[in-house]
């Protein structure tokens, strides 16, 4: 059932509407569970589009197996998706810095508040993000330390490749996930793939995880997908490799493969002079879980992240 979460009038012949698809069980169930699957806060992150589609499609194939409410929000930032823009293109504002908003505030605050209000009451929320256009990520759950104890039980069911628990920066207190966690809705951020793209295998992997979670919550009585236990990591077990110079980056290792300490994982080139500026070397052994895709780099740009330690 297509429901309007929030709408407002635009100046010239149009309304902006944020929709959700509410999928109800076929039969009446006492106190049904409810899961919200949210995507499109950043308009250039499209991995969630396939996940939303595939969850709805699989439920439609076996509606009798649904024992709870599934709310799917494919596009919290419709303008951003329409314009391939991370931010709200009109105000150049990152929507994921505007939560929880305010019902009687300005336009930006009301939109955020409308979204939060509609999700409240869910037993679990999954906020699906992609990486940006610059780096590619393996499917992972991102948890802030503050809420990790409560969320880890769900994170292990997602079928993601890894769970990354990190410290909460103050600015992240205005994200949707943080706001919902504070308001009592356990919310996990899933990050995967890259901006402007859809990686179907990654999407299928996470959709399996979503049905796994729904089975655990008693919301799905169909076949439970076979899933994996994600690797666990924290800030201390991730090596960041950044470019120390501007240039063109060429990766020499496959994404989602293991590398050894001292191994060259890429090269930084100067196309003008036809010279190699430097080799990019991993200081640690581990899984290359983040890889630079966009070749043009400045000093400080992320080239790779390595998951180190035992996992």
């Amino acid at each position: 059932m297509k429901e309007t979460v929030f709408e407002y009038e635009l100046p010239v012949g149009e309304k902006l509407r944020i929709y959700r698809n509410r999928i109800m069980p076929c039969s009446e169930i006492n106190s049904p569970g409810r899961i919200s699957i949210v995507s499109g806060t950043h308009g250039d992150e499209l991995e969630g589009q396939y996940i939303c589609y595939e969850v709805a499609r699989r439920i439609a194939l076996e509606p009798e197996n649904l024992m709870g409410i599934v709310d799917i929000y494919p596009a919290l930032n419709p303008f951003g998706i329409d314009m391939a823009s991370k931010n709200n293109p009109l105000f150049n504002l990152d929507m994921n810095r505007t939560f929880p908003g305010s019902a009687d505030g300005n336009l930006i605050e009301r939109v955020a508040s409308g979204v939060v209000e509609s999700i409240l009451g869910s037993d679990l929320c999954l906020d699906i993000h992609a990486s940006d256009i610059f780096v590619r990520e393996i499917p992972q759950v991102r948890l802030s330390e503050e809420f990790a104890a409560n969320l880890i039980q769900f994170a292990k069911l997602t079928n993601a490749d890894m769970i990354w628990t990190n410290a909460t920066a103050t600015v992240h207190e205005s994200t949707l996930a943080h706001s919902l966690n504070v308001l009592g809705v356990p919310t996990m951020v899933i990050e995967m793939g890259q901006g402007h793209q859809i990686n179907k295998p990654y999407g299928d992997q996470i959709v399996d995880g979503i049905f796994n979670i729904m089975c655990e919550l008693g919301m799905w009585v169909g076949t439970r997908p076979r899933t994996q236990l994600p690797a666990m990591s924290s800030d201390g077990s991730v090596e960041f490799i950044r470019s120390e110079k501007a240039g063109i980056f060429i990766p020499l290792k496959e994404h989602n493969h293991f590398v050894k300490a001292g191994e060259v994982i890429g090269e930084l080139l100067d196309p003008f002079a036809g010279e190699k500026i430097m080799d990019i070397v991993s200081a640690s052994s581990g899984l290359l879980f983040t890889q630079r895709i966009y070749p043009v780099v400045s000093e400080g740009d992320l080239l790779a992240r390595i998951l180190t330690g035992a996992f």
């Binding site: 100046p11 010239v12 009109l90 300005n106 336009l107 009301r110």
Partner: peptide, 8 residues
């Protein structure tokens, strides 16, 4: 010249 609903 243009304004959205709920804009300040």
């Amino acid at each position: 010249p243009l304004i959205n609903q709920y804009e300040t």
